[in-house]
Each structure stands twice: as C-alpha cells, then as structure tokens.
Write a protein that binds this DNA or RNA. Structure first.
Lengths: 345, 345
DNA sequence: GAAGAAATGAGGGGCGTACCTCAAAAATCA
DNA sequence: TGATTTTTGAGGTACGCCCCTCATTTCTTC
C-alpha cells in the first residue's frame, strides 16, 4: 500500500497548522517568509505532492479550451476536427471541454477578433492553427496578458508569445521527404516536380526548403523544378500537371508539399503512369492511405493527428496548472508511412 | 461551466435513493432487477459517467503494476528500464506504482515462479515481455484466473490468456525493412546479408519472414543470405561478419533483425565500408541513433519505447477498472527513422 | 392476513484538498 | 508598555464518491 503524504502530514512535519499549509500551498497572503520556507522545507523532506485529483474536485475546476482552426476544406482539417470531436468525449472525463472554433482562412482580422472574443468568455487555453500575421501576434499577446495559455498547432508561430508549439519541424519533414525521394528515384531520373498546393501556411515553404537542401546534397544530378502552385482549383491543377508531364517526360518523381494528392494521383492513373513516377507527399489522409495501398503513392510524411490533439490538450492543461511537462512525450514524430507500415484504421 | 450529473442527479432521475444508486453502481447485492434497470435507464437518459477521480479518492485506490522484463544486457532493455523509472514518477501521481521485475532469460520456469509469486502480492496488473512457453501459458492463465490484468509487451503471446498486446506487428516491421532495403540498394547489388542476433524472442523470426516476403517481391534478383546467428558473442560476430564479407563481395546490404548493431557497424567502419553497404536495423537505441547520425546505418525500424510503456500503463489501468480503451491511441506505430527525421533527445 | 424475508431509504463518516470565518497569538510600532 | 497590525490556528463546509449501519417499507409465502 502506497501512502502519499497529505497536507496533514505536511502540517505536522512543518510544525504549523493546516490553515498555514493551505495558505502556503495556494499562495495566499499573510504568511511570513520564514514560515513559507519552513513549509517548503517540509515539502522537500517528506516529498509532498499535491493530489491534483482531490484538488480539482474541491475546486470544482473545469478547463475550457478552444481549438481555433481555419475553415479550409481539406481532408487533413477534417481529420483534425474528427479527432477533436472524438477526443472531447474523453476530455470531459477529466473535466475539460474542448470547443471548436473555425475562422475564414483569408482574413486575419476576423481571426484576431475571434481570439479577442475568447478572452472574455472564461476560456483557459487556446490552441490555434493559423499563419502568423501582425494582428495575430497582437491577439496572442493579449491572450497571454489575460493569463490564457496559448499553443500553436501544426504550424508554428515563432515570433508570438505562444507558450508552446505542437507539431513537427516542417523543414526536417521536407528533408525527410528529400532523402526518400533521392533513394527511391530511378538512376536515370533527371528531374523532379514539386506541387505546392498550399494551405496558406508557412509549411509548404519550409518543406520545400528542406527538400531542396537534401536533394541538392544527395541527388545533385536531379533538377528540382519550380513549385507548381494552383491555389486549390482542381481543374487547374489537372491541366497544369498535364502540361508539365508533357513538357518534361524526364520527370521521375513528384513531391507534394501540401494538399492536392488526390487530383495528382488521379492524373497519373489516367495517363497510366502510376508506379512509374515516385510520388511522395505529406499528411496521412484517407486518400493518401488509399493511394499508398493502391501503389499510387510511394511514401507519406506525416504527423499523427491524434497525438497532436492529445499533446495540445496535455500541454494546455500543464500550462494552465503551471506544472512542468514531459518534453519527450510531447515531441511529435515525423512519421514515414509506406504501404508496409500503414497503421490500421 | 460544465456540470456533469452526479450520483444525486442520478438518484433523483431514477426515483430511488442514493443508497440504491450506490448499490447498483457498485454491483452490491439486494436490489431488484427492475430497480437496477430503472437506474441504468436513468444513467442513459442523463448521461451519467462516474467521476473516476473522486471514486478513486474515496476508495483510496492504488494500482500496483508489475513490469516483468528479461534480464538481458541490451540497450533496448536499458531504454525500457530507464523509461519505466522515469514513468514511475508520473504514475505515482495517478496512484499507481510500477514495479520492475527481471528474470533470467534462459529459464522459463523461473519466470513462471516469479509470476506465480506476484499473484499473492496484491498486484493488480502485469506487463510481461518474454518468449511464449508452456509454463508461461500456465502462469498467465493462473494470473488471469486470479483477476489480474495481463498484457504482453513488445513480443506478443498470442496463445495465452493475455488481455492485450502492446507492441508492433513484427512481420509488418520486417516487411517495412524489406521495402526500404529494396529501394535503398544499388542496382548492381546481388545479395543481402541478415544478422539475427536474437533476444530469444520470436521477433527475429517474424521480422525475417516479413523481410523475405517483400524482398522476393520487390527485388527478386537479390539473394537474401541465410541468417547469421552468433548468440550474443561480440568477438564471434566480428569474425563471422568478416568471413561473410570476404566470401561475398557482392553484398550490398545488411539487415539486422535484433541486436548487434554496434559490433556490425564497427566492423564495417574498420573495413572502410561505411556508406557502401546499406544497413537497416531495428530499435532506436543510443547506438543506432549515433550510427544514423554518422551515416553508419541508413534506416532504423523502431517502436517508441515511451509510447509502449505509457500504452501498457493505460491498458492495464483500463482493464483493471473494466473500462473500454481507445484503440487508436493504443496502437503502437512502426516508425521508420532515418537521419533526417531523428527525434531530438 | 400475519409472519418472515427481501428491498429500499436515511444518514453518517471518510478520502485529500480548497476556501472561508473568527479568534488567539505574535510581532511591530509609537 | 500599550496599542495596533500582522500572522497563525481552529474549525467548518464543500467537492463526488465509497462504504457502512439501522430503520422502514414492500414483497412473499403459507
């Protein structure tokens, strides 16, 4: 039987009353510095650790977290939303409610207004996935000033006062894609195309940089063509891809930095080129999973959406409670997925 | 403010007293079937979910878990042990103590005796990593009969009454290694060596099978040589490897199914062959990490030891409490690690 | 319909902590 | 030294649940 010391043990050990221990533990005023030290010493001696469960019970503490995501139509975001919904059921058991808020991706001011609104609503923490803009920086500073924990999700906001970033290093992810591309390419390949159907976030740029870096080093003979950007229009993508493939029959691989996997693999399949060109992309969406199984994609670099969500949740709670977090657990892996290590549904 | 229904709400809704609700919730005798149904209906209607934290507090519940690991000298097991120790500090906060028990890997009867001893010690759950033997099967059956939750760790025990398996599908892991090997190999390669320095577990066999399967499909022109088994003796390994490399200068890749990465990469380095032979192995130990960074290994297929431990802990607690678990969270990934996506320390 | 058995209700004490009030003790200041 | 302020102690109530006892009600059975 394990018997953790309680506040009563602590009071006895420190030679003070329960009330004083309580004052020290909860940083209430009216205690001499000397007494505070005595209690802290006792805490060290007997190894007292507050029973968070009991404390939360007594406090009737609820954590209110807001997940602020762009209102973009992509399978990746759909997966995030679905994961969030499923996670809510579990989170409620640990007295935390997760609220989903979406914002129109094109207007940073609307996002800023939404965040500003959150501050007055008794929200304890915010996880936000958005491109960094000046108004966003200001909005996050305001949240921070209001004592609200903020984490950046998927896409980092390095120049803001966010408390933490939950996601992967996209440059490293791009480098990983580059290494695989370099090794998967046939020897005769002379060029590789890059499809940068961006989600307006900085991801695409960073991934491309990492990819280029490695390709230059590992496959110096291969030309990495300029990014094809088609801003979401599927028909346009199909046409542009068709043109490029016609113009450059020496293309041996295609790297998809953002979304648009589906349209691309369809174009390739229609042209009977499936399996003849190495296709590497990001994010294990339903379609990417299907493409891997059918041999329409060769590898997917991804981050586990479930881990991202759970990590964000843990980090926010830790920040709110002011307790340290286990960094090794919160590190999101850059996962390489091929058909053979595809996780089950 | 979120207000979860409490037992009081439940009693009111069901039209019974608190005492009866308590009897139903805790399966105490002396309640008519009709009343039980009434309470269960009310639970459904108002969506009552027991506050586990409060319940555990009232019960003064402690979870005692035993992690039973072989006393093998390998970096992988060292990592497991280290992770376990670090995890204990966190686990104690959720009223669970994790005890480490090690057994001599050569004698299954000692292991069985240890497990039998555990049953009488008030242990609630056991995580065991061991090869499946008849005595082990019996021991696990006995634990199960005693109401103790059992999970298999890293190496599955499919024909026992274990409640769950925490780890990866080793055949799929071998297939993953095979795909990478096939794609990483130079075109001129005619053969690949396999080093099966086994930990006595079934892993090596399963991985080899998966590896062969894929190599035959993807690289039919490459001969996969018979496994080199050297049962842990480093000097022997060095010699055997040297002989093989001399005899077969056409070896283009080496697959290490178990331990022995260090000795192998050293042999290759001494012979100036680093980078000229594709080396793929399993488990991201400190040495594997170092080898990846130095270009002495090309890829490592691994499972995250931290995830394995935490998953085992969650699964055991869930089984003990009799609550369902989130399968998607408990699925251990087959991770592919190359230099570029190597997670930080 | 009465006696016995079974089911239900009422209530108390406790788990470890938070938060509050009021009185008593100690320190500080003039 | 006495008055004032600050610090400390004592004790109560609550959180949501567990577990126990004892009285009361309801159901069986003959």
């Amino acid at each position: 039987m394990v018997m953790r010391p309680t506040v009563n043990d602590l009071a006895r050990e420190a030679g003070v009353s329960l009330a004083t221990v309580d004052r020290v533990l909860n940083a209430r005023p009216g205690v001499r510095a000397k007494t505070i030290d005595a209690v802290n010493d006792a805490i060290q001696r007997i190894g007292y650790v507050r029973d968070v469960a009991a404390a939360n019970l007594a406090r009737r503490r609820n954590y209110r977290l807001a997940f602020v995501l762009p209102d973009t139509d992509s399978q990746f975001l759909d997966a995030m939303v679905a994961t969030l919904r499923r996670g809510s059921a579990v989170a409620i058991l640990s007295r935390t409610v997760m609220e989903l808020v979406r914002f129109p991706p094109e207007d940073p001011h609307v996002l800023a207004a939404i965040l500003a609104g959150l501050a007055g609503q008794g929200i304890d923490g915010v996880a936000v996935m958005a491109p960094e803009t000046p108004v966003l920086r200001d909005a996050i500073r305001a949240l921070h000033a209001a004592g609200i924990a903020v984490v950046a999700l998927v896409s980092d906001l390095p120049n803001t006062e966010r408390d933490h970033f939950v996601g992967i290093d996209n440059r490293a992810a791009g480098r990983t894609a580059g290494v695989l591309m370099g090794r998967f390419l046939q020897d005769k390949t002379r060029s590789v195309a890059v499809l940068a159907q961006s989600m307006q976030l900085s991801e695409a740029v960073e991934r491309r940089a990492g990819f280029d870096e490695v390709m230059q080093r590992d496959a110096p003979g291969v030309e990495v063509l300029p990014s094809l950007e088609t801003h979401g229009a599927v028909s346009l993508l199909r046409q542009v891809m068709g043109d490029v493939l016609d113009a450059r029959p020496d293309i041996g691989g295609i790297y998809i930095t953002g979304i648009g996997q589906r349209a691309l693999t369809e174009v390739l399949a229609e042209r009977g080129m499936t399996g003849r060109i190495v296709v590497i992309g990001h994010e294990l969406t339903d379609h990417a999973r299907d493409a891997l199984l059918r041999g329409r994609m060769d590898a997917v670099i991804t981050q586990n959406v479930g881990h991202v969500m759970r990590s964000a949740l843990r980090v926010l709670r830790a920040k709110i409670d002011g307790v340290p977090l286990d960094d090794s657990q919160e590190q999101i892996r850059i996962e390489i997925v091929i058909r053979e290590n595809l996780p089950g549904v």
